[in-house]
């Protein structure tokens, strides 16, 4: 069958978030894969246990490494890892908060209630991002 004229259903909020959820899900896998691989290459094989390694991968605050009693190296706190950390935080928080919104809105048909729930979720989303990035930015050494 030949492709027929392209439908133009329009870019709706639901469509964009549906797409984001899939991309961010894959993005989180990518960040984790790169994080674990790089950590192992940088010495985690001998200096970190599995729990610490996973904590560092998903939230590579140098405190995790410090708590593990490992000497800090520049590699743990460089701009690259702060970007990776930022991506993990943005993808993770937004993915999770949108999932929460999606599930809650399954049960809400009233427009006013939906608006209130959305505002609360957006505020929580901002709070989580602010808290996470405050930790990231304070981790400058």
């Amino acid at each position: 069958m030949q492709s027929r004229p392209a439908p133009q259903p329009g870019l709706t909020f639901e469509y964009l978030m549906w797409l984001f959820i899939r991309i961010s899900g894959l993005g989180l896998y990518l960040v984790a894969l790169v994080g674990v691989t790089a950590a192992l290459v940088m010495g985690a094989r001998t200096q970190l246990d599995m729990g610490t390694l996973i904590r560092w991968t998903f939230f590579p605050n140098s405190g995790h490494v410090a708590n593990a009693g490992v000497d800090l190296e520049l590699g743990w706190v460089s701009l690259l890892w702060q970007i990776m950390q930022g991506m993990a935080v943005v993808f993770g928080v937004t993915h999770g908060m949108n999932g929460l919104r999606n599930i809650l809105e399954d049960f809400i048909s009233n427009k006013g209630t939906r608006l209130v729930v959305r505002v609360i979720i957006i505020l929580l989303w901002i709070l989580f991002l602010y808290a996470a990035f405050t930790l990231v930015l304070s981790d400058t050494l």
Binding site: M1, R4, P7, Q8, P9, G10, T12, E14, Y15, M17, W18, N102, E105, D106
Partner: peptide
């Protein structure tokens, strides 16, 4: 259906809040 010409209208309905995105 290759004979139908109203895919746009239908997809607009399904591309809304209570369309396909409520399917988990």
């Amino acid at each position: 259906d290759s004979r139908d010409e109203a895919a746009n209208e239908r997809l607009k309905v399904l591309n809304s809040m209570f369309g396909v995105y409520r399917c988990h």
